[in-house]
């Protein structure tokens, strides 16, 4: 409870400082609108449904691309950690591609798939896949060999060992890899949406882009706030429970 109060006070303070700066009139209200105006935009956008629709479009793309990236990255990472030949090929490829900022995939996706949902999906998958793959691979490779040996003396072999020992033992690495993959996917999708206008659905990135075209700072800041809030919620709802579980089981963290 005390932590909640601390957080609320901090953010109330931030808004107060913002309000004070806007009221001081140092900058034109076009460039720095007061918090009330932004709240007004948000209220309006919630009422006319445009904000909810854009959020759903964006989250839909994100979720599908992210899940696809994880579904590919997890088994590939595990396979790379066990098979030297895969580690020397796919592993190296992943390492290289992972250093590529995911926004760099956008031009290629546009040329390949045009202004389509497929292009969006492609960018998100590329943002997710490589970092998940590498995290799982690293995690599984840095396991103490004693776990696998102990499992073998109890009659575990092959695929059973992979699924019931290597996979759960790498869980801390997998969760942090999936978290990183999520962050990359989120960033790459925003970049793609700002960059590419597609007709099958406007996401949050598009709202941001239109705000700039209309010179509407309240919309720009309002949408940015929503993007931040979604990022925070994803962290708290998707990953925090897993991390708490891991800390409790492994006895790590605070």
């Amino acid at each position: 409870m005390k932590r909640v109060v601390t957080s609320v006070l901090f953010f109330a303070g931030l808004v107060a400082v913002w309000q004070a700066l806007a009221a001081a009139g140092l900058w034109s209200p076009v460039l720095l609108p007061p918090p009330g105006d932004v709240a007004h935009y948000l209220l309006k956008a919630v009422k006319d449904g445009s904000l909810l629709e854009a959020s759903l479009v964006t989250l839909g793309r994100l979720l599908v691309g992210y899940l696809l990236g994880c579904l590919l990255g997890l088994p590939l990472g595990l396979a790379c950690s066990r098979v030297q030949a895969l580690s020397d090929t796919i592993g190296v490829l992943a390492l290289g591609l992972q250093t590529l900022p995911s926004v760099c995939w956008v031009p290629l996706a546009l040329l390949w798939y045009g202004q389509s949902e497929t292009a969006m999906l492609f960018v998100v998958v590329m943002g997710t896949l490589w970092s998940v793959l590498i995290a799982v691979d690293n995690g599984a490779q840095s396991l103490p060999p004693i776990y696998v040996r102990a499992a073998r003396t109890m009659g575990s072999h092959g695929l059973h060992t992979l699924i019931h020992v290597v996979l759960p033992a790498s869980l801390p690495f997998i969760v942090s890899g999936m978290k990183q993959g999520w962050a990359f996917a989120w960033r790459s999708l925003m970049a793609a949406e700002i960059y590419v206008t597609i007709l099958t659905g406007y996401g949050l990135g598009h709202l941001l882009h239109f705000g700039r075209e209309l010179n509407d700072m309240t919309q720009v800041i309002g949408v940015m706030l929503i993007i931040v809030v979604i990022g925070l919620l994803a962290d708290k709802l998707l990953f925090a429970p897993w991390e708490r579980f891991l800390h409790r089981r492994w006895g790590t963290g605070r």
């Binding site: 004693i146 776990y147 102990a150 759960p168 033992a169 869980l171 492994w250």
Partner: peptide, 8 residues
């Protein structure tokens, strides 16, 4: 070393 599985 006990070699127990920390995830269980």
């Amino acid at each position: 070393e006990h070699a127990l599985f920390p995830w269980l």
